[in-house]
Design a binder for these strands. Structure first.
Lengths: 425, 425
DNA sequence: GTCTATATATCGATAGAC
DNA sequence: GTCTATCGATATATAGAC
């Protein structure tokens, strides 16, 4: 169009007004989230009135759809490029390349990544739902073949290969959310090294872990959580019904998209009753998160401070994580979204993330101690390792690989301590 | 529910708040029309804020749907009642009863009638569209059997019976719109007498009408209208394309619901271009209506003032009407909606309806002259007769009976001059 | 059942670049 | 003369809270 050779004005270049505004919207979406960003915010950023945005986009939602399409296109481009370079280099290097390139795309499209991974699609219309289910067959093929090659070399089961591949895919795409300021190459290398080679140096220790006192402490602490009666129908006290309803609805739709009316309905109470038992939606979120945080923190601290070997404690931590992501499935979904408000003191998640941060420090100390003791490899001291371990353990393996608690724990024990490349016995 | 015998407060009686507000909305819809009535207007009438209305109705549209359902229920009730009284009385009296009862319902549900007949359903969602296609089988059966009985008695064709039945149905339901303050019984009697027995006394005159000078004048005037090139695509001048697009869109969607963008799109021009050729949507409506009004008025006046016999002129007027409702089909649809603003000086239809009113006076004079001459029956002097004649001639017979111009004119000639009960030769 | 606040969206109309 | 981007006003609707 703009290269038709005539001397006419060539306006349809990259920086069209629509693209400018889309980019501004992307910035706001990635900072504040989709629902918290209003058309007025976007308009203000663009220096126009809200109504004027509708000259450029037919709705707020299509902005999101377009951003997701850009992300998809970028991933397809990476897939195409890497496919043409297939078989160049060693498989572990190619894996790092794959992860690194995906992470680079993640950093280039943080708004879309946030939309994709953190904003529950239940709120959206068909169009957005479709845009959110993004498929990149070329990248999937590539990661499958690379992991299978690695697995074949090392004699690892194809099941482990599959779970590990999916886990790496999630963590790669989430890079820009999880590590807002990291270098994708460096991050990819550290994550892959951790996963491929694990954190320990002495693999023979592994087989003593089942009887470690750290694990016993972890199991006791987890058992103390009890089981959550998740169904509000089964509860009698209105306050409990409301909390149970909140857990379900907040997790399902996201806190922003869940209305107080939704919760009242699920709880089987009227709005009036609801407001007699809680003072605000904010408080409700706080109660749910604080309850969860208390249980989780208690278990984690008991384990982290128990004085076992670094490897034993790491293994016990894995137990806590695997159990927490099931017992507190709803709460995990909530804090996943809340992650973006982690530094906002007025956020209901603020306390939770402060505690998380503190525990991350304890994990870091643990890793340092392990290296000093000689039980952990020095890779454990790389800047992102503690976070990578936490994120890797935190994945919902019940979905990723339809794994039972025992299998998920065994898998994590193996990956964390031996690494993917060591065959399991 | 409220008669459960307990001593609890019995609040859910007929005048619930929701019903009160629906009634207020009905009043506004019937006065100002559906699209011109905003939720703020309704809220103001109810003494609440606009948002509060959504406690009672999930949307503005469902208010309309509910009103239409009330109308439908009322008609079904009439159908049931009259069905149980079937075969009582003479068929002409039963016809009057049927029309009268339908008109009574029309007066009790003026808002729904307006929605049903005057607000084009193209703007609505599926739900309203469905509510607008209202069927009352019992009433249809009843009117069919009554008309067939009359037809059989008089030896009239079943085709005439069908067209007449549909025409009476439309005019009955529209009574509250067409005659805001009439008595339904009286109106029904006059309409039925006109239709059953016609306006003339001397039926032999009829067969001279084809060569009357009034009819020749009417035919010449109609021929002078030329044919309208309705498709904007075929026009080159932007101004003409815009007018043609306006005619189509305004008629299809109603003026209120048609946006300037719609017109620009149909005309194949941009908004900027449109506004260089017309100054406002209002002006566009005016231009279309005034053009139509000019053509129509010229023909009508030529005929009404031509000095033939009353019967001849009435016949010639029928020719003009039948042709106008085809040649100016779109404009007819527009003024049908505009009818409600007929007394509003700021309406684009104001001039048109002033002229209409003036012509109605001329028609009235004509009828009086006919009675004085002895060619028309004295029924022609009843208060609503001139209006009834106008409305009856004005019906779109191309739809009502899929009739050609010639057949529609012959039908009207027969009904107006001889009445339904005289068989056609 | 209502309030207050505010969100998304529509629409008539216009300014101004080209 | 045409099109892009915009304004200003306002509509429908939602949501938290009481």
């Amino acid at each position: 169009m703009s290269s038709d050779g005539s001397q006419g004005p060539q306006l349809e270049v990259a920086g069209s007004r629509t693209e400018q505004i889309r980019a501004l919207a992307a910035g706001l979406f990635s900072e504040r989230g989709y629902s918290a960003t209003t058309m007025s915010h976007i308009a203000e950023a663009a220096g126009v009135l809200p109504g004027s945005l509708y000259h450029h986009f037919e709705s707020k939602e299509v902005i999101a759809v377009e951003l997701l399409e850009e992300l998809e296109a970028a991933l397809i481009a990476v897939g195409a490029r890497l496919t043409s370079e297939r078989h160049r280099g060693r498989p572990d290097e190619r894996l790092i390349e794959l992860v690194s390139e995906t992470m680079t795309v993640s950093y280039e499209h943080p708004a879309a990544v946030r939309l994709l991974m953190y904003e529950p699609p239940s709120v959206a219309t068909e169009r957005l739902r479709k845009a959110v289910t993004l498929r990149v067959p070329s990248l999937e093929r590539l990661s499958r073949s690379t992991m299978n090659e690695l697995a074949a070399m090392a004699g690892v089961t194809s099941s482990d290969a599959r779970v590990t591949r999916v886990a790496l895919g999630i963590l790669s795409l989430n890079a820009s959310s999880n590590f807002p300021h990291a270098d994708p190459r460096q991050l990819a290398e550290q994550l892959c090294e951790l996963v491929l080679w694990g954190a320990t140096r002495i693999t023979s220790e592994v087989y003593e872990l089942d009887s470690s006192s750290a694990l016993r402490i972890a199991k006791d602490a987890v058992a103390a959580w009890g089981t959550a009666p998740e169904d509000p129908e089964e509860l009698t006290a209105p306050a409990d019904r409301i909390l149970a309803a909140g857990r379900i609805e907040f997790a399902r739709m996201g806190v922003d998209a869940t209305t107080v009316r939704d919760i009242a309905k699920t709880a089987g109470v009227t709005m009036g009753t609801l407001y007699r038992h809680t003072d605000s939606k904010f408080t409700l979120v706080r109660q749910i998160i604080d309850d969860y945080a208390g249980h989780f923190d208690q278990a984690m601290r008991a384990v982290l401070e128990c004085g076992g070997s670094a490897a034993e404690i790491l293994d016990a931590v894995a137990w806590v994580f695997v159990n927490a992501s099931r017992r507190f499935r709803n709460e995990s979904d909530m804090v996943k979204v809340g992650w973006f408000d982690r530094d906002d003191e007025s956020s209901p998640y603020f306390q939770y993330f402060r505690a998380t941060n503190h525990r991350l420090g304890l994990l870091q100390n643990l890793l340092e101690r392990g290296v000093a003791e000689g039980s952990l490899q020095s890779i454990a001291l790389a800047p992102y390792t503690a976070s990578n371990i936490r994120l890797f353990m935190w994945l919902p393996y019940q979905d990723v690989g339809r794994m039972s608690i025992a299998r998920a724990h065994a898998y994590l024990r193996h990956i964390m301590l031996n690494g993917f490349l060591v065959p399991r016995l």
